[in-house]
Amino acid sequence: MLSYIVRLICCGAAVYFMPAILSKIYVTDFTTAIIVAFVMSILNTFVKPILQILSLPITIITLGFFYLVVNVAVVYFCSYLVPGFSVDGFLQPLIFGFILSIVNSIVAGLQD
Rank of each mutant, 00 (worst) to 15 (best):
L100H: 07
G97W: 14
I95G: 08
M40D: 15
F46K: 02
S41L: 12
A33D: 13
N71E: 12
S23T: 05
F96D: 05
C78H: 03
A20C: 03
F38H: 11
L94I: 09
T31K: 12
F65N: 05
M40G: 07
F30T: 08
V103I: 09
T32S: 11
F17T: 05
S41A: 15
A108D: 03
G109L: 05
L100R: 01
S86H: 12
Y67N: 12
Y16G: 08
V87P: 00
S41D: 15
S55R: 00
P49Q: 08
L94D: 06
F65C: 06
P49N: 10
L100G: 14
S79Q: 08
V103G: 04
L8P: 06
I9T: 12
L8I: 12
Y76H: 14
V36Y: 04
I58D: 01
L43T: 10
V6T: 07
L54K: 14
Q92K: 03
F90A: 07
T28F: 10
I9V: 15
P93T: 10
L56A: 11
F96W: 11
P57R: 01
A14H: 02
V39F: 08
D29Y: 09
V39D: 06
F66A: 05
G64Q: 03
V27F: 03
L2P: 00
M1K: 08
I34C: 11
Y80A: 13
I61E: 00
I53L: 11
N44Q: 10
V6R: 05
Q52H: 07
V74N: 15
F85R: 07
I61C: 03
V6A: 09
F46T: 01
I25T: 04
A73K: 13
S23I: 00
V75K: 13
I95F: 11
R7L: 13
C11T: 07
C78M: 14
S105W: 15
G12T: 09
I106E: 03
P57T: 00
A33M: 06
I99N: 04
A33R: 06
T62G: 07
F85P: 01
I21A: 11
S55E: 04
V75L: 12
V103H: 01
D88Y: 10
D88T: 05
V36E: 04
I5L: 15
V47I: 15
V74H: 15
V72W: 06
F77Y: 13
G89F: 01
P57F: 00
P19E: 03
V70W: 07
V82W: 14
V107D: 00
I50C: 01
G97F: 14
L63W: 00
T45K: 15
D88I: 03
F77K: 08
L91I: 12
F90R: 00
V15W: 02
C78G: 10
I50L: 15
V72G: 03
I50Y: 09
P83N: 05
T31M: 12
L100Q: 12
F38E: 11
L68W: 10
Y26T: 13
I61F: 11
V74T: 15
I21Y: 14
N44Y: 05
Y16P: 06
D29P: 04
V69G: 07
P57M: 00
N71H: 09
